[in-house]
């Protein structure tokens, strides 16, 4: 087992019911090296998802067809919930409302069950019937070949930038590494670090557990964890004096309004958004106005043409020129 896999196993195993941990460890080949998800669904096969694809395991840890696979029971799910909440469900009300709990190491456990509504809004989940352990892996250096595109060397500042892609193309991983590089600086590329503020609404960027970032987001990065973006942007602006604010998955109009405030306060913003093309981006009401105002100086397109996290193109939307890959807009 590789060193990283050992560390990931150690982080995850104490939050998985003991018998299921033994099943995973019982598989003849070490699964931790490229494991991405562990799925526990009530009365349905125990499923593991890795880079090689999906796999069902029987009670001894051997690969099995769905009919022979181990099927987690109510007790397994209750035990799992007990472990991931450290027997303190009350401390995870907000997370239960959002449908996930982050555990040490920045890994997230997605939850499925029956939603409890109050005044038409989800207040929590009950009768948990599905858990998905999503293993967080930070890829250090993924943004290094591109970081210089985001720096305005002449004015010694970071450019307002947007990273876009369809889901599961590595936006968050790229943004995390970019934030780390901007925060720490890259002397080899001729810039020292900037003060970075990070609004991590879904605890995905920094993978915070009890507010403490579990993933490396840089030495000069202040993380506002589990805070709504629009509110978080203003809080960081007022309280932490950042030079750059980083946030994930913008899209709502209130996010765009808060971003405008940040930009007009002289702070650089770097964000990600779901969109496959520039046209799709401009079709989103929350982002259209920002694009029309030509706020962004760089838009980076991620794709999967050479695997997740492939930088397909970087453009300067103000001039319409492509600064890396592809052809001009």
């Amino acid at each position: 087992m590789q060193k990283l896999a050992v560390s990931i196993r150690d982080q995850i195993i104490s939050y998985v019911p003991r018998n299921i941990g033994e099943i995973i460890d019982g598989h003849p080949v070490c699964l931790w090296d490229d494991l991405e998800e562990i799925r526990l669904r009530l009365g349905r096969p125990l499923a593991l998802h890795g880079r090689q694809g999906d796999l069902f395991l029987d009670s001894k840890g051997a690969a099995a067809a769905a009919a022979e696979a181990y099927r987690p029971g109510r007790e397994d799910l209750e035990q799992a919930l007990h472990l991931i909440s450290s027997a303190s469900l009350y401390a995870f009300e907000q997370e239960l409302r959002c449908g996930y709990i982050t555990i040490p190491g920045g890994h997230r456990v997605g939850l499925c069950g029956q939603a409890v509504l109050e005044q038409g809004r989800v207040v929590r989940l009950k009768y948990i019937t599905g858990l998905n352990y999503r293993i967080a892996r930070e890829i250090k250096g993924v943004a290094l070949p591109y970081v210089h595109y985001f720096i305005d060397y002449r004015r010694r500042r970071v450019r307002h930038s947007l990273i876009i892609s369809p889901p599961r193309c590595g936006k968050t991983t790229f943004l995390r590494d970019l934030a780390r590089l901007i925060s720490d600086g890259v002397p080899g590329l001729g810039f020292s670090g900037f003060k970075v503020g990070m609004v991590d609404e879904r605890s995905e960027l920094a993978g915070s557990f009890q507010g403490e970032p579990q993933l490396n987001v840089g030495n000069c990065t202040d993380v506002l964890d589990a805070c709504p973006k629009a509110e978080g942007l203003m809080m960081l602006l007022r309280s932490m004096g950042p030079q750059v604010i980083v946030t994930d998955e913008i899209g709502l109009e209130e996010d765009a309004r808060a971003m405008e405030e940040v930009i007009h306060a002289g702070v650089t913003i770097i964000a990600t958004a779901h969109a496959g093309t520039l046209e799709e981006l401009c079709a989103r009401p929350g982002l259209r106005r920002l694009m029309q105002m030509q706020i962004f100086e760089r838009v980076l397109f991620l794709g999967r043409s050479r695997g997740p996290g492939t930088v397909e193109r970087i453009i300067d939307p103000r001039s319409g020129k492509t600064v890396h890959g592809g052809s001009d807009v």
Partner: peptide
């Protein structure tokens, strides 16, 4: 009921 209910229940 320690730890098994929401804050209000606790």
């Amino acid at each position: 009921s320690l730890g098994v209910s929401q804050r209000e229940g606790q």
